[in-house]
């Protein structure tokens, strides 16, 4: 439909996976973490964590930067905010449509 909706769909698809949600929440609590740290806390392999983080990175939900031999990940909030705002926009559109119905009905 348009770029915003595509972004929103990417974000929602990424969040549909419980492991990725868990990773995001852990990252948000810690501020930042490496894949190794996260894998130590969860019953999944480091390799699996790396793959999930790569997907989260590709849709803009996390950022990564090099820290020694590892990459340090952090939550990026712009896309989440955009997703929340998208819902607000849809609600506002309904307000506009209802107002239009009201105008027509009261004519």
């Amino acid at each position: 439909m348009n770029a915003v909706v595509n972004d929103v769909e990417d974000v929602l698809s990424a969040l549909a996976d419980p492991t990725r949600r868990e990773l995001l929440e852990r990252l948000s609590m810690r501020g930042h973490a490496t894949a190794t740290t996260l894998a130590d806390e969860l019953p999944i392999s480091r390799q699996a964590v790396v793959q999930h983080l790569a997907l989260l990175d590709s849709v803009g939900l996390v950022s990564a930067r090099r820290e020694g031999r590892e990459r340090l990940f952090a939550v990026r909030t712009e896309q989440l905010t955009k997703t929340a705002r998208w819902m607000d926009t849809l609600a506002e559109r309904w307000d506009l449509r209802l107002a239009a119905i009201k105008r027509l009905a009261e004519m």
Binding site: L15, P18, R21, E25, S28, V75, T81, A84
Partner: peptide, 18 residues
Amino acid sequence: ESHSEGWTGVIARLGEYV
């Protein structure tokens, strides 16, 4: 099924974080 809890909770919680 994983959608039922889904991104609803995540957005709410991460919203607080934001």
